[in-house]
């Protein structure tokens, strides 16, 4: 019995888009090593506001790495506005699901994507409806770690 499905394991063992760009158009980080997961996303955006490439670096467990891989796959080729619509739920569905206990803590993608786009918007003087009210420095939700007591 494996803990993760084949698709998750595939993205974990052979993650797509690992790395950073020398001159990213936008860069954002979410999470912290203290919490056990930290994801950094870097993007390249062309003149038409299309994300032409994305890369990630993630400190975290198997599902955090797999969801980073899938999330970067999902935003490449999308416009910035479209990428802002990517939710953790969509990343989760793309992965074919995760064990319930993993869902809250290890899917950091939508916040990390928004952070990278926020950085891009700041640098290029742009505004997006999808970023309204977004604070890249908002603390992680404390509730996310309120999970029932361990079993063994």
């Amino acid at each position: 019995m494996a803990m993760y499905n084949d698709k998750v394991m595939d993205h974990f063992t052979n993650p797509h888009n690992v790395g950073e760009f020398d001159n990213p158009d936008g860069e954002g980080t979410y999470g912290s090593p203290v919490c056990g997961d930290m994801m950094k996303i870097s993007i390249l955006v062309d003149a038409n506001d299309v994300i032409t490439d994305a890369k990630f670096k993630t400190f975290g467990c198997g599902s955090a790495i797999a969801s980073s891989s899938v999330a970067t796959d999902m935003i490449i080729g999308k416009t910035v506005e479209e990428a802002l619509e990517v939710t953790n739920k969509m990343v989760l569905d793309e992965l074919g699901g995760l064990p319930p206990i993993k869902i809250h803590c290890s899917v950091l993608a939508d916040h990390a994507i928004k952070s990278a786009i926020y950085d891009y918007a700041q640098k290029h003087g742009k505004t997006y409806a999808g970023l309204e009210g977004f604070d890249p420095n908002a603390p992680e939700d404390e509730d996310e770690h309120a999970i029932p007591e361990e079993l063994n």
């Binding site: 803990m3 993760y4 394991m9 974990f12 063992t13 056990g36 997961d37 975290g60 467990c61 198997g62 955090a64 206990i101 993993k102 803590c105 290890s106 770690h145 999970i147 029932p148 007591e149 361990e150 079993l151 063994n152």
Partner: peptide, 22 residues
């Protein structure tokens, strides 16, 4: 997980591998 794929069984103090996430 990587070690498990290679047939090696170890345990970890990592929060992510405990059911309580602590």
């Amino acid at each position: 997980l990587f070690l498990d794929m290679k047939g090696i069984a170890i345990s970890t103090g990592s929060a992510c591998s405990s059911a309580s996430l602590t």
